[in-house]
Amino acid sequence: MSTNRLTACIAQLSPRLGDVEANLASHLEAIGEAAAQDARLVVFPELSLTGYRLRDLTYEVALRRDDPVLAQLAKETRSGPDIIAGFVEESDDHRFYNAAAYFSAGRVVHWHRKVYLPTYGLFEEGRFFACGADFRAFDTGLGRVGILICEDVWHLSSAYAYFLQSVDWLAVISSGPGRGLPEEGKEPASGKAWNSLLIALATFFNCGVLYCNRVGWEDGVKFWGGSKAIDPFGEIRAEAGQVDPELCFVDLDPADLRLARINTPIRRDERPDLLKRLLDEMGQ
């Protein structure tokens, strides 16, 4: 575990639909501002380089892993903060993934392909994207990290997989639409559910959660923002608004990971072998 404090910038942007060049420019601007504020990590939302409701644009905005746009972001991390950004990845065999990369020290340290593609209601990701196949934690200068993309969070086994790998920080990136405006509460119904889930993850798994959700509108669908940082005790430490693009800064102390795990040593006591036995019996 790193002893460095995690000063993070959660970049709650409003990407322009299908305009990678314009979005790269807004990324660079945010990275510059984050660096000026001594952030060590900048987290951008799901599909931050492309916008969300891509449909047939999926194939037109896709980036190969050696694309100059990704190389540009990598280059920024030679002297600047680490970066997590979202984009459409095209594989060598021409599958298209809703993907994210962790950039650090001038290169990509980790690629994550969204595993759970929502294809119901207003979502149609399964029509355009191939699904990823794993949840692999990775080590960074800021600690051990796991990336979840939006719907990944709604499957508890995703974060559990990272918990088993003893992550310090979960980076959750999303393009979450606001749906339902109940009279009670301060956010859309979908946002209320998100907050509960994220706080539960931090509490269940004794890890910090950095949540970056985009804002803005695409054809009448509002992305509700509400980006936030949650400490390993499940307390919200920083929170962005629901309407405007903004950079949300937070300073998380890795010492909290230690204290949280002394207070409630969930990982120490966890019995994944019981689950393994059950899954084996079920033939899964």
Partner: peptide
């Protein structure tokens, strides 16, 4: 409470943002 009840202030904020953004970005 009626299923039609909604958070009026939040609804107004969102709809104002909708008109501003969807007008200006064109």
């Amino acid at each position: 409470m009626s299923l039609l009840s909604l958070n009026r202030q939040l609804a107004v904020d969102f709809l104002v943002d909708f008109v501003r953004e969807e007008t200006r970005k064109f």
